[in-house]
Design a protein around this nucleic acid. Structure first.
Lengths: 198, 198
DNA sequence: CCCCTAGCCTACACCCTTTAGGTCAGGGGC
DNA sequence: GCCCCTGACCTAAAGGGTGTAGGCTAGGGG
């Protein structure tokens, strides 16, 4: 009956679904094989090894995230675009926690060189285009934006905000306010870090 | 000869050293036992299980980090204190990468309730005291600061900054500039996100 | 019609976690 | 002073995950 052709893509997709359901640490070749109704060694025809499987999930996740962001920032600019960008990250982390986890790992070089990785940078850059940054500063702003959203979601998902009062949702709004304000009033390069004499 | 008493603290310390040397994923009970010259099952008298061992590393790491921060911000305020706070995080991530990794995991509740966790919040809060924030805003600023530094270091260590031009060190300086500027000109609460009526 | 290839299978070697139960040495009670 | 008891480490073993070697089968091309 040849019930399922079982391609590399199908294996990775199943692994991603498992990651979203049970966490990335639950993604073992054994578990994926079980879900596919296949014996473990059969997967090695489609995936090199465990690390390659995780890299596959990362690549898939990056493509998913980029697609969401593209949708969220389309036709918007300035603060609305910023909200879209950040919101897309957060929604992705909520809806696809396993894939999100996969993006936090140090991956093989293929992931960084993928089209999705490039698109993500381009999209973020486009959002920053709405703010009036000096050309050389855009990279720094991109990195800061990426750092903050990444860190926020990591801490939120790790429960680090569960031990103090205002709900993470409130801080999330204030974080967007703060980043928007920061991008509008981006400090000039080296204003106080390399003063002439005083 | 009773060569080594082998206490819970000694086991965790050895595990932390291994994590710093070979990465947190290399911390297995087997590997720790080998380093201690002991058979694996012997460790179970001192550590409940693998998860507890990792939690132990996290607690230790949090204490280490807090101590560094305390040192780095002592007697400083304003931007100098901010630099100290952020710099201590970064130095810790560089010097003790395994412990740093341990702080990124979702831990058991004991870690969050530890003295070190409380101290970390207090110290961060103290740094913010040098900036003139409305009382209700300090929590948000603390969270944003934590998010950004965490995210930055995660991305830096993951190599995410290796594919674009300026070195991470440059962006690090600009990040501090930006955060300093942001804290000085913190946007008023709910300027656009929850207006009364307009 | 036969063979060859592709894809899944069984068998196995190795490592890590965790439990069960043995052994030995040193300290407290008699 | 002797005996027992406890604590710390040990061996044995089960269970599950990774990864390799090699077999079986079915369908397509010569």
């Amino acid at each position: 009956m040849t019930r399922a052709p079982l391609t590399p893509a199908a294996v990775v997709a199943e692994a991603a679904a498992l990651a979203d359901a049970d966490g990335l640490e639950a993604v073992t070749l054994s578990a994926v094989a079980r879900r596919l109704g296949v014996r473990t060694p059969s997967l090695y025809s489609h995936v090199r090894d465990h690390a390659a499987l995780l890299d596959g999930i990362s690549t898939l996740a990056l493509a998913d995230l980029t697609a969401r962001i593209a949708q969220a920032v389309a036709g918007r600019s300035g603060r609305a675009a910023l909200e879209g960008l950040l919101g897309a990250h957060r929604a992705f982390a909520r809806d696809a926690p396993g894939r999100w986890q996969a993006l936090q790992r140090r991956t093989g070089p293929d992931v960084a060189r993928s089209d999705a990785a490039r698109s993500l940078v381009v999209l973020t850059d486009a959002v920053l285009h709405g703010y009036d940054l000096p050309p050389g500063e855009r990279v720094h702003a991109t990195r800061l934006l990426g750092s903050t959203v990444n860190g926020y979601l990591t801490l939120e998902r790790a429960g680090s905000f569960d031990h103090s009062e205002p709900s993470p949702d409130v801080s999330w709004g204030r974080t967007i306010d703060a980043l928007d304000a920061l991008l509008r009033a981006w400090p000039a390069a080296a204003p106080a870090s390399a003063p002439k004499a005083d």
